[in-house]
Design a binder for these strands. Sequence first.
DNA 1: ACCGGGATGTTCT
DNA 2: GAACATCCCGGTG
Length: 205
Amino acid sequence: MVKRALPRRFYDRDALDVAPELLNKLLVANGVSARLVEVEAYRGHDDPGAHSFRGQTPRNATMFGKPGLLYVYFSYGMHWCANAVCGPGTTPHAVLLRAAAPVAGLETMRARRTKARRDVDLCRGPGSLGQAFGFDRSFDGADLTRGSVCIVDDGVPPPVSPGVSPRVGLAVGKGDERAYRFFVRGDPHLSRAGSAPRSNPRRPS
DNA sequence: ACCGGGATGTTCT
DNA sequence: GAACATCCCGGTG
């Protein structure tokens, strides 16, 4: 079985098509690797939940780059979250990497994730995943198809019938109703169980 | 298990 | 000043 980084053509499509196919792929970076079990699609100009909705800014510039780049952004003043930039072309679509099952470099992940009590929590949630991989601003714009940061197909197929649900953490009216979250059903590493994300605490009053 | 709140800083209004 | 693609802890049931 030859492990190979996913080619650019894999990413050069609508994030809604790429997202479910990223499930069970291996994220390899910074001395560790983990199998993706939960992702979310963010769809450019038409998606009020996407950073790119209001156009290009210094923060989201990588989303407007070529498919196959890693878009890393700083969230809530303390977390680094990672996306795979999609397409087609320079359409600013992206797939947020929300949760993964640790595969290699567990000791390194534990050292980075000092708050995680169990290994199942090492990459559980986008902020936790970013911490386990040691992501920061320097990873923004990394090329997933050429460099040491990559997503690998090691022969495990995506689920035939992935779980689908609304995305997590979006405010009401900002795309929260769209079923753009995809996950491996029943996987113990999901950021939240099954298809019922916690209701949004920032409801309009 | 569920829920509320604090941490912490960049981005946008 | 408010919002934010979050996480963790402590209180309650």
